[in-house]
Design a protein around this nucleic acid. Structure first.
Length: 770
DNA sequence: ACTTAGTAAATTCTC
DNA sequence: TTTACTAAGT
């Protein structure tokens, strides 16, 4: 792009960037100083505004290294940088910092690691590592996983961290037994991480806050460095992120946040919508810009989205409008079961591709839960229709890949305990559970890192000579390649080192199809390292591992190839497609069962649907099934209440393809939240969202929930009550002492007559009423 | 120490 | 249906 600066727009050298923007967009771009809140409705050109704003700053002469852009995914940051380099030239754009909160602050933490007691080569623990560490701590403390499920503990610790509660504070305010025990585990977990020179995801933010709070000089350095802050998807930031941003912006107050409260869909992982709602209070001098013109969708789609979201009570006021055409009506596919749904979706897509000249990359299928992808995949495969599931991390979740990554992590950070435990006996070296137990126990007692204990294995009591030798070999490999690290490039180092671990050979020798597959994956990973190194010759192993650790589903590079994209609605945030299909609009699935009674949850589900609908540019198809397989069992459900909320003028009277006897006319019994929409049976005459006789598992709003306790006759469901006598096929007779949760996740604590107490999932435990 | 067989539990979303 | 953990067997 040439820099011919025709003074237009506002007359500054950057003014021509404002041409072609509407008034609100231009204002958002050109208000460079002071705090700015941009409320960007779906499809209102937000990305354009953000990139133009940065380009504008740079054209005004702002040093690119003074700009920090925080995005929701790394891919978004990458794309933003590319677009900016088109506007201002690649050299300039390259030196600005852009990325997710986690990746940006990981980089900064490496720089200042020694200030907070870490080395720059610290390891980032993902959720699995986190769970492994917690499990180990629980073992060490003798807390049974039966009593306290690991994932629950992980969740509580993580949400504490998200709200910036330290283990000390957590312990202090703990009052239930569960919280007290969690507090204890929390403490040990933190110590274990510190000992391992490792941080979990939440720590990347927390430690940044600590760094800034305790080291004013660092704070000031960073404030001076990042004079212009931009935060995208501000509605989905959590409290810790808010804190970091607040601190960094304090000095220059050039903070621009972009968000849309209607698209806030991450409350469950700690996103705090107050961050955006209170922005004007936090920055009284701020300017608020509303982007309300939608350039993406047809009038029909926008109207449908609007009719849904307006049922929510809490939201900032704004009114989206569009000059786009009216467009096609929305199709609703009513299906008998999930298989039929998948087939109908596949057929519908194929016929529209034919009829309207779409190509497959113009199409996305969105769903609420990943489990739904299975049936859809089958149907697409049957029809030879190219598709792609957006879940970029799956490759990195494979056992062999994780093993290789763990080996590599050990190379840069031998103190990484979770990685040691993961691979020390992979391939089998004769170092078993008992040995590891002793080593860990010794490490805790002498307060030294596990790797150090292993390096001096002869000091550990009760060690057999043979095991000691095996341990020495293991330690030797790591030490040897660690020494070579300065001389070799990461790719060739990794190649030789992994070879030396014996892992690939193990799989190669097994010769089974599965083993060869695994061997292949290892080769692919090593190739990938080489590729990445090619792209950036300064890449270190640390960089590479960090990039992998912070990868998210939405970072998947395969989008945009000639295939249908399939993903959850969460993963679809920020994307758009000419034709969008949203599958599984059923009570209990979308909205999920637990959102049926909890209004906050319900509003979040509604926002999620809003996000889904507004991904569509031209055509939208919705579908639901009357029954579908879940856990290998057929369950019945009724159409989603949300279907009834969509303005019926936007829906097409579709030809119902349901066969046979289930074409009964029946209005759903879910109470519509607005009186003027008493039923949606008019959606196409003669068609119905028919209701099936006995919903077995999915709960509904209007009907008492039949639950899993089966009376002697399997068809006679009754609900569990405290005090009720029940019989379990394994544990015998007992009395229910407490009940928690609802629907699928309903749990009952049963005191069995033999003295055992068990917490059981009502839906799974085959309890019999006595 | 490692392998195998059997059983219990799980499915929402993620940096 | 699939996964993950435990217990028993070699």
């Amino acid at each position: 792009m040439t820099l011919t600066l025709t003074p237009m727009g506002d007359g500054t050298p950057a003014g021509d960037l404002l041409n072609g923007l509407n008034a609100a967009q231009a204002e958002a771009v050109s208000t460079t100083e002071g705090p700015v809140l941009i409320i960007a409705g779906a499809g209102s050109g937000k990305t354009r505004v953000l990139t133009f704003r940065i380009a504008y700053l740079l054209r005004l002469g702002v040093n690119p290294s003074h700009v920090l852009a925080l995005t929701f995914t790394n891919k978004a940051a990458q794309e933003m940088k590319e677009r900016i380099s088109h506007l201002v030239g690649g050299g300039v754009a390259r030196s600005m910092m852009a990325g997710t909160f986690h990746s940006v602050f990981a980089r900064i933490l490496r720089q200042f690691a020694d200030r907070i007691g870490y080395t720059p080569s610290f390891t980032i623990y993902d959720t699995d590592d986190q769970a492994a560490a917690i499990k180990a701590v629980m073992n060490q403390l003798g807390v049974s996983q039966q009593v306290l499920p690991v994932n629950g503990v992980r969740g509580r610790i993580s949400s504490a961290k998200n709200s910036m509660i330290s283990w000390q504070e957590y312990v202090r305010s703990a009052d239930s037994i569960i919280e007290k025990q969690t507090g204890q585990i929390f403490e040990e977990y933190e110590k274990r991480l510190a000992q391992s020179n490792a941080m979990d995801f939440d720590d990347l933010l927390l430690n940044t806050i600590r760094l800034l709070e305790h080291h004013p000089d660092v704070l000031e350095t960073l404030q001076d460095r990042f004079r212009y802050l931009l935060v995208d998807e501000y509605q989905d930031t959590n409290r810790a992120q808010y804190q970091v941003v607040t601190m960094l912006a304090r000095k220059y107050r050039n903070l621009c946040v972009v968000g849309d409260d209607a698209q806030s869909i991450y409350r469950w992982r700690g996103a705090d919508i107050r961050n955006i709602l209170d922005f004007e209070r936090d920055y009284p001098e701020s300017k608020v810009v509303r982007l309300e013109q939608n350039y993406r969708s047809t009038k029909t789609i926008l109207a449908a989205a609007d009719s849904v979201i307006k049922r929510n009570t809490k939201q900032l006021k704004k009114s989206l409008f569009t000059d786009n055409i009216e467009g096609e009506k929305i199709t609703v596919l009513a299906c008998r079961d999930d298989r039929e749904e998948a087939d109908m979706i596949a057929r519908t897509i194929r016929s529209r591709v034919e009829k309207y000249g779409y190509s497959y990359k113009d199409v996305a299928i969105l769903y609420r839960t990943n489990a739904q992808s299975q049936a859809l995949e089958d149907a697409l495969r049957r029809g030879n229709t190219p598709y792609h599931i957006v879940s970029g991390v799956s490759f990195y979740k494979r056992k062999e890949v994780k093993d290789v990554l763990a080996y590599l992590r050990l190379l840069v950070n031998p103190n990484d305990t979770e990685s040691i435990l993961r691979v020390i006996n992979e391939p089998a070296r004769g170092i078993g559970a008992t040995t590891l137990e002793r080593v860990q126990e010794f490490a805790v007692r002498t307060n030294s890192p596990v790797f150090e204990v292993l390096s001096n294995i002869e000091t550990v009591p009760m060690m057999q000579a043979r095991t000691a030798k095996a341990v020495k070999d293991f330690v030797g490999i790591i030490a040897r390649y660690q020494e070579m690290m300065p001389e070799l490039a990461p790719a060739s180092l990794a190649q030789a080192y992994i070879e030396a671990t014996g892992l690939p050979q193990m799989y190669k020798l097994q010769q089974s199809e599965e083993a060869l597959d695994r061997w292949n994956n290892i080769e692919r990973l090593l190739d990938h390292i080489a590729e990445q190194q090619e792209l950036d010759e300064n890449m270190t192993l640390i960089n590479y591992l960090e990039q992998i650790a912070l990868l998210s589903d939405a970072d998947d590079p395969k989008l945009g190839t000639e295939r249908i994209a399939m993903m959850t609605m969460h993963a679809a945030k920020g994307l758009e497609f000419p034709l969008v299909v949203i599958a599984g609009l059923e009570q209990g699935l979308f909205p999920l069962a637990k959102a049926e009674t909890d209004m906050m949850e319900q509003e979040e589900e509604r926002r999620l649907l809003y996000v889904g609908i507004t991904r569509a540019r031209e055509q939208l198809v919705l579908s639901y099934a009357e029954r579908r397989y879940r856990f290998g069992e057929l369950v019945f459900s009724r159409p989603s209440m949300f279907l009834g909320e969509i303005d019926k003028d936007t829906l097409a009277p579709s030809a119902r393809s349901m066969t046979g006897n289930n074409a009964r006319e029946a209005a759903p019994r879910t109470a519509p939240s607005s009186p003027k929409q008493s039923s949606y049976s008019q959606v196409g005459q003669g068609e119905s969202y028919s209701q099936l006789p006995m919903p077995k598992r999915y709960t509904s709003v209007s009907q008492p929930k039949p639950r899993g306790v089966q009376g002697p006759a399997p068809e006679g469901p009754s609900s569990v009550k405290v005090g009720q006598r029940v019989k379990h096929p394994m544990f015998g007779a007992g009395t229910i002492s407490s009940v928690s949760g609802t629907g699928q996740s309903e749990k009952a604590t049963v005191l069995f007559d033999n003295g055992q107490r068990k917490q059981l999932m009502v839906a799974f435990a085959r309890l019999e009423a006595l």
